[in-house]
Amino acid sequence: MPGGGPEMDDYMETLKDEEDALWENVECNRHMLSRYINPAKLTPYLRQCKVIDEQDEDEVLNAPMLPSKINRAGRLLDILHTKGQRGYVVFLESLEFYYPELYKLVTGKEPTRRFSTIVVEEGHEGLTHFLMNEVIKLQQQMKAKDLQRCELLARLRQLEDEKKQMTLTRVELLTFQERYYKMKEERDSYNDELVKVKDDNYNLAMRYAQLSEEKNMAVMRSRDLQLEIDQLKHRLNKMEEECKLERNQSLKLKNDIENRPKKEQVLELERENEMLKTKNQELQSIIQAGKRSLPDSDKAILDILEHDRKEALEDRQELVNRIYNLQEEARQAEELRDKYLEEKEDLELKCSTLGKDCEMYKHRMNTVMLQLEEVERERDQAFHSRDEAQTQYSQCLIEKDKYRKQIRELEEKNDEMRIEMVRREACIVNLESKLRRLSKDSNNLDQSLPRNLPVTIISQDFGDASPRTNGQEADDSSTSEESPEDSKYFLPYHPPQRRMNLKGIQLQRAKS
Rank of each mutant, 00 (worst) to 15 (best):
G4K: 13
G4I: 12
G4C: 13
G5V: 13
G5D: 13
P6R: 11
P6A: 12
E7S: 10
E7T: 13
M8Y: 10
M8L: 13
M8T: 13
M8I: 14
M8C: 12
D9K: 10
D10T: 13
D10A: 10
Y11V: 12
Y11K: 09
M12V: 14
M12K: 14
E13N: 14
E13I: 13
T14W: 11
T14M: 10
L15K: 12
L15N: 11
K16A: 11
K16T: 10
K16I: 12
K16R: 13
K16P: 13
D17Q: 12
D17K: 12
E18N: 13
E18G: 12
E18K: 12
E18Q: 10
E19H: 13
E19M: 12
E19N: 12
E19P: 11
D20H: 11
D20S: 11
A21E: 09
A21I: 09
A21W: 10
L22C: 10
L22K: 14
W23M: 08
W23S: 07
W23G: 08
E24F: 12
E24K: 09
V26L: 07
E27P: 01
E27M: 03
E27K: 02
E27I: 03
E27S: 05
E27V: 06
E27R: 00
C28W: 03
C28G: 07
N29D: 04
R30Y: 02
R30C: 03
R30T: 01
R30K: 01
H31E: 05
M32R: 08
M32D: 12
M32I: 06
M32K: 10
L33C: 05
L33D: 00
L33Y: 02
L33M: 09
S34G: 03
S34M: 04
S34F: 00
S34I: 05
S34R: 01
S34L: 06
R35L: 04
R35Q: 05
Y36I: 14
Y36G: 09
I37W: 01
I37Y: 01
I37S: 00
I37V: 06
N38F: 06
P39C: 09
P39R: 01
A40M: 04
A40I: 03
A40F: 08
A40G: 07
K41I: 02
K41L: 04
K41W: 08
L42K: 02
L42W: 00
T43G: 04
T43R: 02
T43Q: 00
T43A: 04
T43P: 03
P44N: 01
P44F: 01
P44Y: 00
Y45F: 14
L46V: 02
L46W: 00
L46R: 03
L46Y: 10
R47H: 03
Q48M: 04
Q48G: 06
Q48R: 03
C49Q: 15
K50F: 11
K50S: 10
K50R: 11
K50D: 06
K50A: 10
K50G: 12
V51G: 02
V51P: 02
I52M: 13
I52S: 03
D53P: 02
D53Y: 05
E54C: 06
E54F: 10
E54H: 06
Q55E: 06
D56F: 03
D56A: 04
E57A: 02
D58H: 00
D58L: 05
E59T: 00
E59I: 01
V60E: 02
L61Q: 06
L61C: 00
L61H: 02
A63S: 10
A63D: 15
P64K: 00
P64V: 08
P64M: 12
M65Y: 03
M65K: 05
L66D: 00
L66N: 00
P67Q: 09
P67M: 14
P67C: 07
P67G: 06
P67N: 07
S68E: 00
S68T: 13
S68I: 03
S68Y: 07
K69W: 00
K69L: 03
K69G: 00
I70M: 13
I70F: 09
N71V: 10
N71M: 10
N71E: 02
R72S: 00
R72V: 01
A73M: 06
A73P: 00
A73F: 00
G74R: 00
R75W: 05
L76K: 02
L76C: 03
L76V: 03
L77W: 03
D78P: 01
D78G: 01
D78L: 03
I79R: 03
I79Y: 02
I79L: 06
L80Q: 01
L80R: 01
H81Y: 05
H81L: 05
H81A: 08
H81C: 05
K83H: 06
K83I: 04
K83T: 09
K83C: 05
G84I: 03
G84H: 08
G84Y: 01
G84L: 04
Q85V: 07
Q85E: 08
R86I: 07
R86C: 15
R86L: 07
G87T: 05
G87K: 01
G87L: 06
G87R: 04
G87S: 05
Y88F: 14
V90F: 15
V90W: 06
V90S: 09
F91S: 03
L92S: 14
E93A: 14
E93G: 08
E93S: 04
S94R: 05
L95Q: 06
E96D: 05
E96N: 04
E101G: 04
E101A: 14
E101F: 07
L102T: 04
L102Q: 05
L102S: 04
L102A: 08
K104N: 05
K104S: 03
K104I: 10
L105Q: 03
V106E: 02
V106R: 00
V106L: 05
T107I: 06
T107L: 04
G108R: 08
K109N: 04
K109S: 10
E110I: 07
T112P: 09
T112A: 14
T112F: 08
T112M: 15
R113S: 15
R113P: 06
R114M: 06
F115G: 12
F115L: 15
S116G: 14
S116R: 07
S116T: 08
S116A: 07
T117L: 09
I118K: 12
I118S: 08
V119M: 15
V119T: 15
V120A: 05
E121R: 13
E121Q: 07
E121A: 10
E121M: 05
E122Y: 04
E122A: 05
G123N: 15
G123C: 15
G123K: 14
G123D: 15
G123L: 15
H124V: 12
H124A: 15
H124F: 07
H124S: 15
H124L: 10
E125G: 11
E125T: 11
E125N: 11
G126K: 13
G126W: 14
L127C: 07
L127D: 06
T128W: 11
T128N: 08
T128S: 05
H129E: 07
H129M: 11
F130I: 15
F130L: 13
F130N: 10
F130C: 15
L131A: 10
M132V: 07
N133C: 14
N133D: 06
N133E: 10
N133W: 10
N133F: 02
N133A: 06
E134C: 06
E134T: 14
E134R: 12
V135P: 06
V135G: 08
V135W: 04
I136T: 11
I136N: 06
I136A: 07
K137L: 10
K137R: 14
K137P: 06
Q139N: 12
Q139A: 09
Q139D: 06
Q140H: 09
Q140E: 09
Q140I: 12
Q141N: 12
Q141C: 10
M142E: 07
M142C: 14
M142L: 10
M142G: 13
K143I: 10
K143L: 09
A144W: 07
A144Y: 11
K145N: 09
K145S: 11
K145V: 10
K145D: 09
D146G: 12
D146N: 13
D146P: 07
D146W: 09
